[in-house]
Design a protein around this nucleic acid. Structure first.
Lengths: 252, 252
DNA sequence: CTGCCTTGTGCGATATGTCAACAAATAATG
DNA sequence: CATTATTTGTTGACATATCGCACAAGGCAG
């Protein structure tokens, strides 16, 4: 049982302060951080001064910015995962053979987080890299990872906030998404046709460990060509299945 | 003036706890974290329980592991930098044209941190990605970034800990490194020949903003071919200089 | 059983969050 | 331009959280 006696408020507040720094708010004053985090100005100030003192933030007397030191925290996390290094050779080989980009990601809440990637030709407008995030509900890897969760949990995630359409093809109705996920659960792979970005198709399979638990997802990103989306299955699924089988042997 | 009244010990301790998680210690017990961080067991326990409570760590009753949630912290940091997104198109174009990998990095202490990368064929054994770190003293980008610092500061960084040789070609004498850095300062670019890894050469230039301040470094990684390392200059420097000039126009 | 390790838990002393007041800076107003 | 509002950073006082110590309680090997 976790009681107030076993927690550290200061740490929670400090981490919340770090997360208030976004692309939209890269430089913030004490008052801005206070407003964004809901902390008292005095408290926010102490968090920020502490971060600056430790080298996690810079302070010019008025505005605070995060320093690359913060990246150490995330890197520390990635470094603890054995998976990225194990799959990288497979990704490289797969991408080179097919001439397309491949990635591995895991689930964090309602987002997928890229943990490894081999990018070939540029097919997406935004550049994805380890640590990048995309919504799970409209991505092939996200569908695969959600399919591994209990239905009730998925429903909760999809209901938490309204699903934002990224293109005209994005399925935004939670019921409909649940249905697609059920289909993915049945067939063991997911195909997405331009739901994330116009011109981009994607096919993903789960990565299983020796005990059959889903630990990540593997995908191929492809330009939307004339052929039907269904063609992806016959054309690319075997290669993905092969890697899936190989990884399953060596995972835990 | 920063007094004890303006800092939060709890935050500092918690961040230290996160950084104790490394590739060598991905799963740690309370006692292990306590030993690695120098914190009291009771304190380490509180930090870990707090992290688990916030979703930054998992706890199976015995061992703690970091969750992908921690990656948000680092991602928050990367997202606040305008540079990665600005340089990515240039990197992509450069890599595609030359068929080699290119990267942009910044300095954090005595390490360079990759913030953007376009990887073409695989030339390095380890896979680099945004957030990855390499020692500054033996990398082309590191030499370029160190050259922008006051000499005294560089000397301090190089003297802080003994320079580890990564290959038989690595220059590990601080004096000698200082000399190379002076040369880089004079000529405005750096060439490295297999000091990081056997078979890998690299050439880097600084990225300057409109006011001429060094804000990052740009490099090309190349396989060590038969030609002399000096050939890199005539062959690749113009392309790097061109990007340098373009970026200088648009940076702040 | 008995050391030897670990984790969990009271307790006093100290650090730290909250709230309020205040001063300096900035914005708004006439 | 002077003056008033409004916001922001900083400081002080008090109640409370939390640190670190010492000790109790569980696990495991010999």
């Amino acid at each position: 049982m976790i009681t107030a006696r076993d927690t550290m408020g200061g740490l929670a507040k400090g981490l919340a302060v770090i997360e208030t720094f976004t692309a939209d708010h890269p430089r913030q004053s004490i008052a801005e951080v206070s407003a964004a985090s809901g902390l008292d100005r005095a408290t926010a100030r102490r968090c920020l001064l502490t971060l600056a003192h430790l080298g996690y933030a810079d302070y010019d007397g008025k505005f605070f910015t995060l320093t690359p030191r913060v990246l150490r925290l995330g890197t520390a996390c990635l470094a603890t995962m054995p998976l990225p290094q194990m799959v990288q050779p497979w990704l490289d080989k797969l991408s080179e053979t097919l001439g397309e980009s491949s990635s591995v990601s895991i689930l964090d809440g309602d987002e997928i987080v890229y943990i490894a990637r081999a990018s070939q030709r540029k097919v997406m407008s935004i550049s994805l890299m380890p640590g990048s995030r995309l919504p799970a509900f409209c991505t092939s890897m996200g569908r695969v990872l959600l399919a591994a969760l209990p239905e009730a949990e998925v429903a909760l995630l999809l209901a938490a906030r309204p699903l934002q359409a990224r293109t005209e093809f994005t399925v935004t109705d939670p019921e409909a998404v649940m249905q697609r996920i059920a289909q993915v659960r049945g067939q063991g792979f997911a195909v997405i046709d331009q739901e994330v970005e116009i011109g981009l198709r994607s096919i993903a399979v789960p990565i299983l460990d020796a005990r059959g638990r889903v630990v990540a997802a593997l995908n191929l990103g492809l330009p939307a060509r004339a052929e039907a989306p269904e063609a992806l299955e016959s054309r690319y699924l075997p290669a993905l299945r092969a890697i899936q089988a190989e990884l399953r042997k060596v995972l835990r």
